[in-house]
């Protein structure tokens, strides 16, 4: 008798499992049809690095070497010379070895002027690793192609149709919640 009840229980549990499996079809498809359909990547996501050029064509980077110093993988190489006329430096060379970079975004955090930023372009696959030894032209191009980018100082930014750089609204910024709450508090105080 015991055997029969046990067998019945086992069969019932197997049946339950089979029901779970067949009911799962209701949950729909969860596959992303990449490359036919691009995945939605949040703006803070660090998929690649880029250098930002202002709308008037000047580099944001002031060659302060902060990013080079902070990089854990030591893949940033910057060469600069003193600006012969006026203050500051002239950027001679700005290389990032994107093969050995580990996309930790420490350089982005260190940059005082948000010149180096994280972008969401993850399609870095290539047949030739040499193409990933990025120089300044490469990084500028990445920055020009990016729809939006992120840096902790300025938050999420994007280029509007006129080519001007704008900061995204507060709702899309990390930390925006706290800011909005603060504003709401102030309004309720008034």
């Amino acid at each position: 008798m015991n055997l029969i009840t046990e067998a019945a229980k086992a069969l019932r549990d197997i049946g339950k499992g089979m029901a779970v499996v067949s009911r799962a079809a209701e949950k729909g498809k969860h596959t992303n049809l990449y490359p036919f359909e691009m995945p939605e990547i949040p703006p803070v996501s660090c998929q690649s690095l880029a250098l930002i050029i202002e709308a008037d064509g000047t580099d944001r980077c002031v060659s302060c070497l902060a990013c080079e110093k902070v990089c854990p993988s030591q893949v940033i190489t910057i060469e600069r010379t003193r600006n012969p006329e006026g203050k500051g430096f002239v950027l001679e060379r700005f290389d990032i070895d994107l093969v050995n970079c580990m996309y930790c975004a420490a350089c982005v955090e260190a940059c005082p002027v948000s010149a180096i930023v994280t972008i969401q372009d993850f399609e870095l696959s290539t047949y030739d690793l040499q193409t990933l030894k990025a120089d300044k032209a490469f990084l500028d191009e990445q920055g020009r192609r990016a729809k939006q980018w992120y840096s902790p100082k300025l938050g999420v930014e994007y280029r509007n149709e006129q080519g001007e750089i704008q900061v995204a609204p507060l709702e899309q910024q990390p930390g925006g919640e706290a800011e909005l709450l603060k504003q709401a508090d102030k309004e309720s105080d008034n």
């Binding site: 420490a106 902790p152 990390p174 930390g175 919640e177």
Partner: peptide, 27 residues
């Protein structure tokens, strides 16, 4: 996790004295 930290498996998010950046508004 990615919406807040910027990484999926390798987020680099905790740091000394807290976390690196504030959480996503809808976190």
């Amino acid at each position: 996790i990615e919406r807040t930290t910027g990484g999926r498996m390798l987020p680099n998010y905790f740091t000394f004295g807290g976390v690196r950046r504030d959480v996503h508004p809808k976190f």
